[in-house]
Design a protein around this nucleic acid. Structure first.
Lengths: 331, 331
DNA sequence: TTGAAAGCGCTACCAG
DNA sequence: CTGGTAGCGCTTTCAA
């Protein structure tokens, strides 16, 4: 920067102002900008952050970057925060809370302006770290009872219950549920709990749950799972799956076995992934606006940042996101 | 850090050494670490980077984070680089070179240690910026003729030609190709060019190409595309699709039309995505080790960094990744 | 094994 | 609108 300043015959401060788009006379600005371009000068963000005491980072943690759900949420966050000059520092927790803690710790070193987490469960240390950092935090995709700060999510349990009621209304009675064997995928686990609760509430007998494979289960788990379900309870009329991925796998297995869906057995998914509306038959599912969660979460963080800037008190808020049961051909 | 130092009764330097795991007596180390834990002190990475002149960032640019191909590559990069204390700075170019340029510019501000790009095409300004940054660069998923630095990839064109030959060997003659309408997805475009070249080389008549939808096309584009193909050339025996996603969409459309795959028409995909082996019928495809590309790319960057550290000359290298045609049920 | 001083490249702050 | 000064929190370097 000294270099640029010298060549332009101005002080470093003026160069800094040009870069920041502050008050600089037209003539000076153009002259400085020209030198910057010629030299290909790129300002050092670390020095800027150190000096100003504020970085442009936003720490974002998702369980998996390969799930289109979460990558949509990340896109939403980026859409909301990018225009404000904020840079996402992305981390993939692989559905593990210890990994989340590790990443939070490492990201906090970069003094992020705020943090977006997925889910409402975290290690005690994670909560502590975040608390001490004293920056806005948003938890997404869940409605925790003891939020850290702000929340943008919905009840996975309630969404699953809505699907059970939907199937019940369509006349299905003997329903099963397919899920992963572990609780790693908390939101999937919550859906399963919702299914069980609603089955009980409707007096539909004992829940028929097949738990197979490490959560979150994907397409390939759907086939063996529905196989196991039909082996255990051959008279099952409908199957809810923890996600559209496993529902798809289940439907393909039905094709292989010569079972018609929904004629012989109905199958429902969760998430409204692209496969759910491209599949033949199209898959009845629960739609959640993953991108919208990201956008809303970004907006909440922005608002918290603005409040803090203005010296206003920090209000914790919880934004409840809608979900919709989408009736299609498979159930 | 001064705070920690004071309470521990040592100098800042000793605290710094404890954090870096350098030579510090056992007793001192434990005492300092205890204070660090008590205070929940987290060192400022920006200050460290400024002072030492080296960040721990690696800039990584992929066309899309939602494609499992690229998120696998990102996982591979992380697996190779994470253990060395490097932090990925992820960017999604949305398949646009101008977006890539923007992101490179913004990431360069953080003085990354090295850069991983997807593809071999970049704007002139991107190349310039990278050149001037003077740090190791790896281009992935392609074999550019004029690489910036290091390369880890394969020829998409050659891979598509291999698939044409495979189908030819299986007895198919009248083959079509489904792709997106734009050239945004360069690698998809290269596959299409490979198809055309091989069709010509084998003397199989005029290429039958349907280009529909903005690249990269996904599941939902497969259905209308195969419809258009069959409308235009009803006697087509086999269809190659630019990706497994579109192949899946095409197969589902065949089901809807009561066409048997491969009985009435064969369909092949590209990428060996999960859907290709879960689909009924399973999809014949080309397998590429996306995760491996990331790992190899990470290793190349590490090697370049080590060379540089040791003061060795920098060798540009190109690593050619294998691909395999996987014969399944759909073709 | 530990400490003191210097300085990384930038921005806040106050002067002019 | 522009410039000078101080200092952000660390690490490097050298000395003890």
């Amino acid at each position: 920067m000294s270099d640029v300043a010298e060549r332009a015959g101005v002080s470093k401060m003026t160069v800094s102002r040009v870069l920041a788009g502050r008050n600089v006379s037209q003539a000076t600005r153009e002259r400085v900008q020209k030198i910057i371009d010629e030299l290909g000068y790129v300002a050092d963000a670390a020095a800027g952050a150190l000096s100003s005491g504020r970085s442009e980072f936003v720490a974002v943690l998702v369980p998996s970057l390969s799930s289109s759900n979460f990558s949509d949420t990340v896109r939403g966050l980026n859409a909301a925060l990018g225009p404000h000059g904020l840079q996402l520092l992305l981390g993939d927790t692989d559905y593990r809370l210890e990994q989340e803690e590790l990443l939070v710790r490492s990201m906090l070193r970069h003094q992020p302006r705020c943090v977006a987490l997925t889910g409402g469960r975290h290690t005690e240390a994670t909560r502590m770290l975040l608390q001490r950092a004293g920056i806005p935090v948003v938890e997404m995709w869940d409605l925790p009872s003891d939020p850290i700060d702000t929340v943008v999510g919905f009840s996975n349990s309630a969404a699953a219950r809505a699907m059970v009621r939907h199937l019940h209304e369509r006349g299905y009675r003997r329903m099963g549920f397919i899920a992963g064997a572990s609780e790693r995928d908390r939101r999937g686990h919550d859906r399963m709990r919702g299914y069980v609760a609603e089955i009980r509430a409707l007096g539909l007998g004992e829940p028929r749950v097949i738990r197979l494979g490490d959560s979150p289960i994907t397409m390939s788990h759907g086939a063996p799972a529905i196989g196991a379900l039909l082996d255990t309870w051959p008279d099952t009329e409908a199957v809810m799956c923890v996600s559209d991925m496993s529902a798809f796998g289940a439907i393909m297995e039905c094709h292989r076995r010569g079972l018609s869906v929904p004629g012989d057995i109905a199958v429902a998914g969760f998430g409204n992934f692209e496969v759910s509306w491209c599949c033949q038959p199209s898959i009845t599912t629960v739609s959640v606006d993953a991108y919208g969660i990201g956008v809303r979460a970004g907006e909440m963080l922005l608002a918290a940042l603005a409040d803090r800037e203005a010296g206003d008190a920090h209000r914790r808020k919880a934004v409840k996101i809608d979900f919709t049961v989408i009736a299609r051909d498979s159930a």
